[in-house]
Design a protein around this nucleic acid. Structure first.
Lengths: 253, 253
DNA sequence: AAAAAAATGTTCGTTTCTGTTCGGTTTCGC
DNA sequence: GCGAAACCGAACAGAAACGAACATTTTTTT
């Protein structure tokens, strides 16, 4: 409840001018710089503005800043995984790609494939594959998640149930030592499950950073996956399990 | 706070021009070349730009579909229509936007609206409205049409049937002298019909070029529309019809 | 009216940004 | 290929902006 009468007006000015300066606002309201700084920090914490040196700007249109950073994380490793995966994807099939930076990298590698029918719940994947003229792109419906361009919810699941895919390429948020695929978002898990159900074969793409993380929701087990593409050797125990499960493991680079 | 005032504006310029130069930016902002170089390296590290010798370009993955053509055709008229239309759209409603450059222009004008729930079968609209944090975006499923980023087919119609909208803003390919809304694509007509059925009110946006064209499939009549936003006076006969139909007509600049 | 809470002003040490210079690298015209 | 010009990043110093802590004023509560 730390609102002052200045906050709404600062917002209005920011909308009009595109930016506000500490100095300018201090003069405008007849208060000290420090007071304005406090205002701006409060408003930035509330997400109404984005703080910059000397003032503030409207929240960046690219809300998915965390996402951009993730995409930029280790692009070469991601690309290597994606290349290995794309090499195993034949032409002339129907294919699902779900949410995740890794699956986007796969989409990038599929630009030269032919006669694919790709269904996706990832806006970025659709945007990428639009550049492949011999590829039919179908987008599932769903609520658009700003953080990563994913389409989630019942609409997505319902759409997926209407298809049967030759192959699904999925990502996950984390992968634990027992070989369980985990995700942060319960809704997304429903979507992933539906995908696995509707697919004849399944590939998992995940870089080694996923080994270290954990997440609350369980999607499936590596035993349900036909091939796993990653960039670092698996722990010995898990590697053995994969052999038993007949899950092919491809370590790139 | 790892940003400066310049970053958002640089991004904006890059989006508009396709590229930015160190020299040009330095002049534009009145700072030294080195400062701009630092900006560009920062932004490149964050994945928002791609550095090239002498400047920077947009990252290749950020290819918004149809972005080029959108601004090509008489943008000022479209923007005027869109502004007039957006002014009639209240906050806090559910809203459908369909395919067409005109509806995309409306989306652009809705960036400052609040608490909208927007459903769309237009990828470009979704890409635009992602920038409005107080707007929930739902995408219908469908086959992606490359020419305009539209999502069409049964999937789209089915999704739409699951909603009831306070307002629908639609475009059309052509508008004949009898006041009939026409489209080139039969599938798209099915979608448009479904939209009209599920909406309490309906706005049509179409610039005057649509008057001269014709198209084979009939969507509906202007008599089914609550308000029509355009940029040139209607033929006298049609104007009279609209008065009888109680279809409001707004002619912008 | 007194006490408490909140907001604002003031000061000061620290961080961040910017311009300058310099040596190395890339690009471009020949 | 070769050399000049443009461009690049690193390093440094001065300036601007920052946040924390404390004092002061205003508002609210009791």
């Amino acid at each position: 409840m730390s609102q002052t009468f200045r906050h709404p007006e600062i917002l209005e000015i920011a909308r009009r001018e595109g930016k506000v300066t500490v100095e300018g606002l201090a003069q405008h309201f007849g208060v000290t710089l420090q007071t304005i700084r406090r205002d701006l920090t409060d408003m930035a914490e509330a997400g109404r503005l984005e703080r910059v040196h000397g003032g503030a700007v409207l929240p960046s249109s690219t809300t998915n800043i965390g996402y951009e950073e993730r995409r930029a994380l280790n692009p070469s490793a991601k690309a290597a995984i994606a290349r290995a995966c794309a090499a195993q994807i034949p032409n002339d099939i129907s294919l699902f790609l779900n949410i995740g930076t890794s699956t986007e990298a796969v989409a990038q590698e599929l630009l030269l494939h032919e006669n694919l029918m790709v269904v996706t719940n990832n806006m970025n994947v659709a945007n990428i594959l639009v550049a492949n003229p011999s590829c039919e792109v179908v987008v599932t419906g769903g609520h658009l998640r700003r953080s990563d361009g994913g389409l989630i919810g019942n609409l997505a699941t319902d759409t997926i149930r209407q298809f049967k895919f030759d192959l699904a390429v999925i990502g996950c948020s984390a992968l634990d030592r027992d070989g369980d695929l985990l995700d942060f978002d319960i809704q997304e898990v429903g979507v992933s499950r539906a995908i696995l159900q509707q697919s004849r074969r399944t590939f998992l793409v995940a870089d080694h950073s996923k080994f270290k993380r954990s997440a609350p929701a369980r999607i499936a087990s590596l035993s349900d996956i036909d091939a796993f593409f990653t960039d670092a050797p698996l722990p010995a125990a898990l590697s053995q399990s994969c052999a038993i499960w007949k899950t092919a493991v491809s370590v790139s680079e």
